[in-house]
Design a binder for these strands. Structure first.
Length: 334
DNA sequence: AAGGCCCCCAACCGCACCCTT
DNA sequence: CAAGGGTGCGGTTGGGGGCCT
């Protein structure tokens, strides 16, 4: 178990990077791509371990990094995703593609966490510390847990897709770096990330269940921009929440392991009925538990007689998350 | 001006996971 | 199937800079 640190070799430099080192690393990656990080330092003429180089590249030198102050919308996105995902920084970062997980983590720890504490919220649970406004009923706590777990697993999978896309982008970085603008336009480095489309399904479900107004829900779903290229959701065929796999088939296949995890972790209580869904764009068919069509954990959400998270303005906490997701400009990355 | 304190963030560390052999 | 290498991830640290006294 474990491995020996790669940085304990004699003669390897640690600590802050110098501009010369940055230049060497940048020049090498631009010319050759990073390839194997462990093998990179000697080739690039650096007295660093591969891990240090990788970190420096991913957290600082990468051309597709937005630095500087976080916008209000970015802050909101982080807080709300953190409410769903907890300290899953990479998953959160996948929805703020120009920010690194390290940056987001630092920002959370130094700013946002304190702000929540000041507001009397527990930064770990995002609930008021006295629990007077929280979900006090066990069923609702369980529902929240299920929601978070479900979304978390899905986001993990989508984050992985993003990573793989970036990997592909990285592999062709040389040409892209020659023309940063076109790289941006190409969508490889700064494409709209897989958004929280599942939350839209939830909202649609809320609308149905709370208002019993299928037409309104369908209208909402139809109006929603649900054409995220990597989303697992597809409203084109069914505006009331039928889940199908509409994403790139390679990505979906690549995430078989995550799908397994989802099935284990979230479908544990699912019914035995499964539907086979065939992606028209690829020959692979997918098995989707019936419970994914109508997630049972939605029971109890959005009904007037149930307590849900509310902020001090009386807004539904999860609706706020949905608002961020739904708003075309709700987040700089959406 | 200088010393102390605090904050921030780049970087490190160790573990876990994935992939290859 | 197991072992080992490569990489990703999250927690933590420490040094630099700003602020206060």
């Amino acid at each position: 178990m474990g491995r020996s640190p790669c940085c304990d070799k004699e003669g390897l430099k640690k600590g802050p990077w110098t501009p010369e080192e940055d230049q060497k690393l940048l020049a090498y990656v631009q010319q050759h791509g990073h390839g194997s990080w462990r093998a990179l330092p000697p080739k690039a003429g650096l007295q660093r371990c591969g891990k240090s180089c990788r970190l420096r590249w991913t957290n600082y030198l990468r051309p597709d990094i937005k630095r500087g102050k976080f916008s209000l919308q970015e802050e909101q996105t982080i807080i709300q995703l953190h409410a769903l995902l907890g300290n899953r920084w990479s998953a959160i970062a996948s929805h703020l593609p120009k920010r690194t997980d390290n940056e987001i983590k630092n920002y959370w720890n130094t700013h946002l966490k304190k702000r929540l504490v000041k507001m009397g919220l527990d930064p770990a649970t995002h609930k008021p510390k006295n629990h007077t406004l929280g979900c006090s009923q066990p069923k609702q706590i369980a529902n929240l847990s299920h929601m978070a777990q479900w979304e978390s697993a899905r986001l993990e999978a989508e984050a992985r897709i993003v990573r793989e896309s970036k990997q592909l982008a990285s592999n062709s970085l040389t040409s892209q770096l020659m023309n940063a603008a076109s790289a941006s336009a190409s969508g490889l480095l700064s494409s709209r990330p897989p958004c929280l489309d599942i939350l839209k399904v939830w909202q649609g479900t809320w609308m149905r269940s709370s208002r019993k107004d299928v037409a309104a829900a369908s209208l909402f779903a139809a109006n929603a921009n649900l054409e995220s290229p990597t989303s697992i959701l597809n409203f084109a065929d069914n505006a009331v929440g039928l889940i199908s796999y509409g994403g790139p088939c390679t990505a979906a296949k690549d995430n078989g392991g995550y799908q397994e995890d989802q099935n284990k972790g979230i479908m544990g209580n699912s019914v035995e009925l499964h539907d086979h869904i065939t992606d028209p764009n690829c020959s692979t068919s997918y098995t989707v538990a019936d419970s994914m069509r109508y997630p049972s954990f939605l029971d109890g959400f959005g009904h007037d007689d149930n307590i849900v998270f509310e902020d001090n303005k009386g807004n539904n906490y999860w609706s706020n998350i949905l608002n961020v997701v739904n708003s075309p400009m709700g987040s700089p990355v959406f």
